[in-house]
Amino acid sequence: MRADQTGDYRREKIWDPVIRLWHWLLVVSVSTGWLLGQFRDFATVEWHIYLGYCTGILVLIRLMWGIFGPVPVRLRTLLPSPSQIMEYTRHFGNRKPSGSPGHNPFGGLSVVIMLVLLAVQVCTGLFSEDDALFASGPLAGWISTGGVLRATAIHHVVATLLLVFVGMHVAAVLYYLLWKRENLIVPMITGWKWIRVIQRDP
């Protein structure tokens, strides 16, 4: 039998099935969508747009779940207060699992930023155009040429920003795994995570 409590930590189910499935679907749709955008060619560019729609639907589901879902995934839980951030920064370098019952303050903040970026990316994508040749968003014909150019330029900048933030997200998970010896990946698959129960100076 596996012990459900060792020392200061107890195993708890923090991620519900919806958020786990959602997370891995998002990984697939954003990464393939991003690659199909960056390396688009005539034959596959339509799939970039379909995956963009999938991502858009996932973002909407996440907003709903952020309002009606369980506490660890609520938007209000995700947005940390400045004092939480200050407090967390103090032991960020400690070589010890955080035992957070959900996202830590930086994790929560990065989730919100990534969701906003994805929403902007899908919205600008609807108005983007590759000179009407490779592909164009379905609404590009509805606005002025200047507007299309601007939307496309934003779409390109945000694509790069997404790369940066997803990179930071993955780097942080690896930092926790290798330095703080806290595995955050398995909980996002099984839902179970070790939570700190006794609040001592961590």
Binding site: D41, F42, A43, D130, D131, L133, F134
Partner: peptide, 8 residues
């Protein structure tokens, strides 16, 4: 496709 690649 190659023509489009040319523009791009």
């Amino acid at each position: 496709g190659a023509v489009g690649e040319g523009c791009k």
